[in-house]
Design a protein around this nucleic acid. Structure first.
Lengths: 244, 244
DNA sequence: GTAATAGTGTCTATGAGACAATATCCG
DNA sequence: CGGATATTGTCTCATAGACACTATTAC
């Protein structure tokens, strides 16, 4: 209560983006190589400082999204993940970062598998498992982002954001299987998604080189899923879990 | 990319606490009256600026919790709600606030209903509905906090945090009914919570002035609930909902 | 036809939701 | 015993999960 003369400390505010997509049925995250110290040369999430004192945090996130990812920014949903502001996470000083989660649609696969814009997409599994050096606390942020995406698939229509404007039910199932990391029964999956009113709506028919053509769908008006898509194999063992 | 000479702007970092509890089967939030400008005299969430440049954000939240609420801080869980940093939310300058959610156990009801420490507990329903002046964007923060609590009741054992160290099943049902704002069937509720392994464990028997004594329980080791406590009456109408 | 993928039908076990009766305390 | 609260039991309907077959295209 003796704060008459006291002045609060100031911090630098940054945004970081966890942009997830699906490639070859694997979950990938967009990473960039840092050009400046600290962590020069290491992989990092796209992001940066607030540009000026009046910039909205969400606006900064959208700006970074447009700058760093050459994607149709309009179609991307952006969701706040949380704040990461431990002192010492950035050697330059007290930097507090607001992390956002974005989902990018499935990109048309380049034939060879490697072009310029391609370099940034890294498989999540490898990024999290390897002793690969990531800048700052970005490994944890990615981990939190993936977990958030997993949870959101259950209760929201987020999965459709992984797909393009139209998609088949098999495409959608691919998303769930990739993000959750488990196989699903196609027959039960068909039943489930079709019964969930407003989740997906028909949008013509797809043609493929082989096999029976699949029906195409678009994302429906419903964004909150009820009943939810339940993720199986939740561990039945009473386990401890702390929240912060 | 021309950021060689450029320096990023700085912001003031604050924490705000949404502390919820149950009083007379109603959800209440802890509010304080602001003693200084801006919004002097208005109700506001407890909170304040980071104390020094090295203080962890979580530590600041815990510190404010201990300062503003005379509760057993050890037993309270704290969870990050999100960041609120719109320019203009604080006339003093660019203030970015990290909001936390805490759940306080049911307090022993003072006989008269009004004592000194009592002044801060305000019924959530009234706070959100009335044209009562709240400082800053705190109405939205409270709203987000309540919604988070509602959601967490389904998948976590958060409800036990509203109760004391021991509680009856009816007590627990009271929590769900108050937070969700809907009545639940006692028989189905009994079945459900007892079947969820590790949610609650027996802890003796309660004595009351009247009626059959109830069995007492403590919170079990399980913090993530599977299967979840499903909240009924989810609107079956395909409604639009935007996430940010 | 054959290959390949898309889509549908059925059975069962489990759990949610609606509903009524019994148990255990105090006085 | 009466009042008051706690607790248990049953029935039904919906659905998750397991499983096998039919449908439609290209060649």
């Amino acid at each position: 209560m003796t704060e008459d003369q006291w002045v609060p400390p100031v911090v630098l505010l940054a945004v970081d983006l966890v942009i997830l997509t699906l490639r070859r049925s694997r979950l990938h995250v967009l990473l960039v190589e840092r050009g400046i110290e600290p962590y020069k040369g290491a992989l990092a999430l796209p992001g940066g400082f607030l540009q000026h004192a009046e910039e909205e945090i969400t606006a900064a996130a959208h700006r970074e999204l447009a700058e760093e990812a050459d994607l149709d920014v309009e179609t991307l949903r952006l969701e706040q993940l949380g704040v990461y502001g431990d002192p010492g996470r950035d050697p330059r000083g007290r930097v507090v970062s607001v992390a956002y989660l974005a989902i990018a649609p499935r990109l048309p696969e380049p034939t060879a598998g490697t072009d310029a814009a391609d370099a940034g997409w890294q498989p999540v599994e490898g990024v999290l498992a390897d002793d690969l050096t990531l800048a700052f606390d970005h490994r944890r942020i990615i981990s939190d982002g993936v977990e958030r995406a997993r949870a959101k698939l259950e209760h929201s229509s987020l999965a459709t954001a992984f797909c393009g404007p139209t998609f088949t039910i098999t495409d959608l199932q691919d998303v769930y299987e990739a993000v959750w990391g488990i196989p699903l029964d196609p027959r039960n999956f068909y039943r489930k998604v079709q019964k969930t009113e407003g989740f997906i709506v028909p949008a013509g028919t797809a043609r493929k080189a082989t096999g029976r053509p699949a029906r195409l769908f678009r994302a429906g008006p419903r964004t909150v899923l009820y009943p939810p898509m339940v993720r199986p194999t939740e561990p039945p063992s009473p386990k401890e879990q702390e929240s912060e």
